[in-house]
Measured scan of single mutants.
Amino acid sequence: ELELEEVDLYRMNSQDKLGLTVCYRTDDEDDIGIYISEIDPNSIAAKDGRIREGDRIIQINGIEVQNREEAVALLTSEENKNFSLLIARP
């Protein structure tokens, strides 16, 4: 049973970094989820404190993420200042 949490992050300008590194968990081929492998200690996500390494990203801004490229594109989008992440953890 996964616990879901919605985390809203806000950046003042497009130079601010959310600070999330995303990856696949390669140990299970059936698991195509996108996971947070690293959080930059000086980033918006780290200061917010709710997202943890190992969390799975389900949605970004209401869009279900299917692959790492999509997640990276959404997280690094210059147009977005508000990010709503739906994350899951066991």
Score class of each variant (00 low, 15 high):
E1W: 02
L74M: 09
I58Y: 11
E3K: 10
I36R: 00
L74S: 08
S77C: 12
L85E: 01
E29K: 10
E29S: 12
A73C: 08
E70T: 05
S77W: 03
E38M: 09
D8S: 05
Y24A: 11
E6R: 13
L74P: 02
I57P: 01
E3T: 06
E69L: 14
A45L: 02
K81E: 14
Y24K: 03
E70C: 06
Q59A: 12
I44D: 03
T21F: 14
K81W: 09
I63M: 06
R25Q: 06
N61I: 01
D40R: 11
R89W: 01
I87Y: 02
I63D: 09
S43G: 04
D30G: 11
V7M: 04
N42W: 05
E69H: 15
N67M: 15
A71H: 04
N67L: 08
V65W: 05
I34E: 01
T26A: 06
D27N: 13
E64C: 03
R50T: 07
I34G: 04
S14D: 13
C23N: 08
Q15H: 09
D30K: 11
E38D: 08
R11Q: 05
D30T: 09
A46L: 02
P90V: 03
A45N: 01
L2G: 15
V72T: 11
Q66P: 14
F83T: 11
N42T: 09
P90Q: 08
Q15N: 10
D31W: 04
D30L: 08
T76N: 11
Y24W: 07
E78R: 08
D30H: 13
V7D: 00
D31G: 12
E70Y: 03
D40S: 11
E3D: 12
E53P: 09
Y35W: 03
I57D: 00
S37T: 13
I34A: 13
N82Y: 14
L2R: 14
N67Q: 14
D8K: 01
E3L: 09
A88D: 10
E53L: 08
D16W: 03
P90E: 05
R52L: 12
D16Q: 09
I58C: 08
I60M: 08
Q59T: 12
A46G: 10
I39W: 00
I51A: 06
E5F: 13
G49F: 02
I32G: 15
S84G: 10
D40I: 10
S77Y: 07
E79R: 10
D16P: 04
G49A: 10
E6Q: 04
A88S: 14
L4Q: 15
E6L: 04
E3S: 09
L4S: 15
I36K: 01
N67C: 13
R52S: 09
I58E: 12
C23I: 15
D30Q: 14
D40F: 11
R89F: 01
I58T: 11
R56T: 11
E53V: 12
D48A: 08
A73R: 09
R11I: 15
K47C: 12
E6F: 03
E5S: 10
I34T: 09
E53C: 06
N82T: 12
I60Q: 00
A73V: 06
P90N: 09
Q15I: 12
C23Q: 08
A73E: 15
D28H: 13
E64D: 10
L85G: 01
R52P: 00
N82L: 09
N42Y: 09
V7W: 01
N13H: 14
T26W: 02
Y24N: 07
N82H: 11
D31F: 14
A45W: 03
N67Y: 06
E78C: 08
R68Q: 10
G19Y: 00
Y10V: 12
R89T: 10
G62Y: 03
N13G: 11
K17W: 12
E1M: 12
D30R: 10
E3R: 06
V72C: 14
R25V: 14
I57C: 08
A88E: 15
E6T: 13
Q15T: 05
S84H: 13
V65T: 07
D30I: 08
E3Q: 05
G33E: 14
Y24F: 07
L18F: 02
E53Q: 08
S43P: 00
S14M: 14
E38I: 11
G33A: 09
D31Y: 06
E38Q: 07
E29T: 13
P41Q: 15
A71D: 05
D48K: 03
S14N: 11
I39A: 01
A46W: 11
R25T: 14
Y35P: 11
N13L: 05
I51G: 00
R56S: 14
T76H: 04
E64K: 08
N80L: 14
D30V: 06
E69Y: 05
S37Y: 06
R11P: 03
R25W: 04
I87G: 01
K81A: 14
S43Y: 04
Y35I: 12
I44A: 07
G62E: 08
R52D: 09
I36C: 08
K17V: 14
D8G: 14
D28K: 11
S43Q: 05
I36H: 00
N42C: 09
R25C: 15
D40N: 13
E6G: 10
T26K: 11
C23D: 12
N61V: 00
V7T: 02
T26H: 11
E70N: 04
D40L: 15
P90W: 01
L74V: 07
L85P: 00
G49Q: 05
E5V: 12
I63F: 06
A73W: 04
Y35C: 14
S37N: 08
D40P: 06
E38A: 08
G33H: 15
I34H: 10
N82E: 05
L18H: 01
G33S: 10
C23G: 12
R68A: 13
I63G: 05
I34Q: 03
N42D: 15
V65F: 14
V65E: 03
K81M: 10
T76E: 11
Q66T: 11
R50K: 09
Q59L: 04
I63A: 09
D48Y: 02
E1I: 12
E38N: 15
R11N: 01
T21Y: 13
V65I: 10
L75G: 01
E79M: 07
D27A: 11
V22G: 02
A46S: 14
D16V: 14
G19I: 00
G33D: 14
Y24R: 06
A88F: 11
L75S: 02
E70M: 11
P41F: 08
V22W: 12
D30P: 15
L74A: 12
I34L: 09
I60A: 02
E53R: 05
K17Y: 12
Y35D: 03
E70P: 03
I32R: 01
A46Y: 08
A88V: 03
I63V: 14
F83M: 04
G33R: 03
L86H: 13
K47D: 15
A45R: 00
N80A: 12
R89Q: 05
S77H: 09
I58L: 11
I39C: 05
R56A: 15
A46M: 10
R52K: 09
P41Y: 14
L85V: 09
Q15V: 08
K17E: 06
G33K: 03
Y24P: 08
L4F: 14
E53N: 10
D8A: 03
I87Q: 01
K17M: 10
L86K: 15
C23F: 07
E6W: 01
L75M: 08
T21A: 10
D8N: 02
Q66C: 04
R68M: 13
R56E: 09
R52C: 12
D31E: 14
D55P: 00
G33C: 15
D31Q: 08
Q59F: 03
A46Q: 13
R52I: 15
E1G: 03
Y35E: 13
E1L: 08
L9W: 01
I60T: 01
N67A: 07
D16G: 07
